Computed example of a mutant assay.
Amino acid sequence: MAGQILGNRYQVERQIGKQTGRWTLLARDLTTQELVVLKLLFLDEQLEWDDLKLFEREVEILKSLSHPCIPRYLGYFEHELPNDKALVLIQTYVEGKSLEQCIQEGRRFNESEAKQLAKALLGILSYLHGRQPPIVHRDIKPSNILLANRQLYLVDFGSVKTLTGSGDSTAFTIVGTYGYMPPEQFSGRALPASDLYSLAATLIALIAGTHPSSLPHQGVKIDLSAFQLSPEFADWLGWLTESSLERRAKTVQEALDALDNGRQKPQVAQEPVPVVKPEDSKITLTKEANNLEIILPSRLGQTYLQIDPQQIALSHKRLGFQTGRPQTSPRQSISRLEIYQPAHQSPTDHANPQIFLWAGGQKYELTSHAVLTEAEVNWLAYELATWLKLPISNR
């Protein structure tokens, strides 16, 4: 197509890329004499609906973006062909070398260089993920990252997706590139953490000089032991390429902070020391897999703590009748278990041991009506901690 003029304005110089039904061309704008990129989608009988949807989404999203490291949207037109027609997206041209070309030329990046690239890419992702609604690229890989004039550019927004109000994106169209795609994208799901996985996989490819799918693995994780990396950076790359979303970095800021300062690994809560019920206690505790009930004798009646799959409820009864309305919260809002053990520094200190549960912003005082011994508080705290899987905090 070299020399052909599209849209009565753009003279094709050469082809940059080609996929089924899609061409990417370098052209000269005859009005401004500047080089531009034309992305063509052919509207023929082989066109898939998903391809058209992705193309139109790319056009709409690029219109809304303004970042020095992202190609700028210049326009859009339809081009008539002998039998069909094509949709054409016009973008600014970045004259540079892709990181994929660097790999093919045998270039390998050291840790310092990889960290510089990481910070530059995280800066671009911070802009995309910070949009309202957030934008997930979904296809970060070496061929979509250009180096030009010591500047990094993220290109090819053909797989881009805006997130729904819930912050999640689930679609029937699976996009991405094998080796750089996190597991959730194989089921059509994408989040900001998905781009972080692809970013880290890209850095690993640049360090190794080959694609991640070709590298040895330890289980499902890429084995980085063969490369000269500091333990902190190897841990950071491993963290971003965790197959489980729950164990992976969630946000750009979280990843940046850990890159600069090291990752703060979550402390594993110690199992509470087993405590048995005091022989003389009149407390009744009944527990099943999803239900728990505690009945505490109180000064004027009984205190009831009930937890079922839906809620936590604390109520008081006097002479068999409920006094006041039960205090309730959703079960999933239970967040903290606290005990208070008075110091008993003097004979005049008559403070009693206390036990509290927090659910959201509400405090549930099990000892507001009941008087418990220190042994009873320790036993109840142990039972609640093991059943709710919460650590015990001291007030």
Rank of each mutant, 00 (worst) to 15 (best):
E365Y: 05
G262S: 09
Y304N: 02
Q264V: 13
L366C: 10
Y364W: 14
Q116K: 11
A190V: 02
L199S: 03
Y197G: 03
V59F: 01
T323A: 11
L285Y: 10
D280V: 06
L6S: 05
L154F: 13
A114G: 09
T386A: 05
I135T: 02
T348S: 03
V155Q: 06
S64D: 09
Q46S: 13
Q327W: 04
N378R: 15
F157K: 03
P231Q: 04
V275R: 10
V160P: 02
I222C: 00
V175Q: 12
A226K: 01
V36N: 00
A171V: 09
M181W: 04
A148M: 11
A381P: 02
P272K: 04
A249S: 15
R107D: 14
L41C: 07
L380W: 01
L256A: 10
D349K: 00
A201C: 11
I334M: 09
G167L: 10
T24I: 12
Q322V: 08
S214D: 15
P183K: 03
L319S: 14
N110R: 03
Y93H: 15
T202H: 10
P266I: 12
L87Y: 14
G167F: 10
L147N: 07
V59N: 04
Q362M: 12
A343L: 15
Q116M: 08
G219I: 07
E246T: 12
E13K: 11
T210P: 01
D44I: 06
T284Y: 11
L25E: 08
I174Y: 06
S230N: 04
G130S: 02
L256P: 05
P142E: 05
G75S: 05
Q19K: 13
T251N: 14
F233H: 00
L292I: 09
L35N: 13
T323G: 06
Y10S: 02
K97W: 12
V136M: 01
A171Y: 07
T241G: 00
R325M: 14
F77S: 03
K161R: 15
R57V: 07
K282P: 06
E365C: 06
I392F: 04
L38D: 00
T373Y: 02
P192T: 06
L52T: 11
